[in-house]
Design a protein around this nucleic acid. Structure first.
Lengths: 160, 160
DNA sequence: AGCCATTTAGTTGTGCACAACTGAATTGTG
DNA sequence: CACAATTCAGTTGTGCACAACTAAATGGCT
């Protein structure tokens, strides 16, 4: 790959910073607001995401949970242990497939949902965006994610 | 804040997942692609961001570096020690203000820039977006970050 | 049945993000 | 000048992300 004529390398290095960096900053800013709002619930932001999935889909094996969240067992195992220690979640080996671990909500975990409802409302208010606008942004980001994942996969499997 | 009539709480909890989660996923997808592309340079993605700032602005105290990157010394200190150990960066106490530590590029660190130029080009190609489109997205994300930061600040200083 | 590739959780090690804190230098104020 | 408040870098502790690995269970194939 060669440098495009008329575009000094300096500009590329700056432009580059803006895309990935802005995304990174926005993600961390979300994390910061969630941290504040979730403090009362005793949840971290990733733990909250796990609870969202369980509230929506009910009991799931770790594998499925990971697919919803794009996370692997290396991240989920310790996180789930902490949720279990907090009494929000149960973990038990599946009877029919001993490799699999079923993750389910305890009563306390299910009850927490009531208190969690206010969180997205406050988040939405904080963004200052309309629902429709958020949807557009989400779509764009999902497309971006797909393209980046594909590129990373292509790169790590012998250069295409 | 009260629940909007006609919008069941279930939907809010789902919608919520989409915004923050898509952003999170996109950020991590960027991380994944950068990880692959930066492997040759021996840099992690956050280390690369630090190098970008130094390449653009020259020597800076840790504080200023942190302002550019929205990171504090708790994150930067160990990261900079690793860059120093890799021979890419110098760190020395400022003579005029002994509290401050000046971070500068070594020859090796400055030279690495040449090899880094290809990275943003490959990233840009991977996104499949035009430069203009990327700029629009960046602007949106920066607005979002600002709004979220303001909200988090307002929340953590006694509810407004 | 016997064996092997695959699937599934979990563990280990590295690095980042961030809160809370420490310690030293500087600045502001009486 | 003296002293309190602030600034700055660093340390510690917790939690997450991810790569590389282990171990056990499963399923396919001969």
């Amino acid at each position: 790959m060669s440098t495009t004529p008329g575009t000094p390398t300096t500009d590329w290095l700056r432009l580059d910073q803006q895309i990935c960096f802005s995304l990174n900053a926005a993600s961390r800013a979300f994390g910061g607001l969630y941290r504040v709002l979730l403090k009362d619930l005793g949840l971290t932001y990733p733990q909250y995401l796990v609870m969202l999935v369980l509230w929506e889909h009910g009991d799931l094996p770790v594998k499925k949970l990971g697919e919803h969240l794009r996370l692997d067992s290396g991240t989920l195992s310790p996180l789930l242990k902490r949720l279990e220690a907090a009494g929000l979640v149960r973990r038990e080996r599946s009877a029919r497939d001993e490799r699999s671990v079923e993750v389910g909500l305890t009563e306390e975990g299910a009850a927490l949902r009531e208190r969690a409802v206010q969180v997205p409302l406050r988040i939405a208010a904080a963004t200052g965006y309309e629902v429709e606008e958020i949807g557009r942004l989400r779509t764009q980001l999902d497309e971006l994610t797909e393209a980046l994942d594909a590129a990373a996969a292509a790169e790590s499997a012998g250069r295409p």
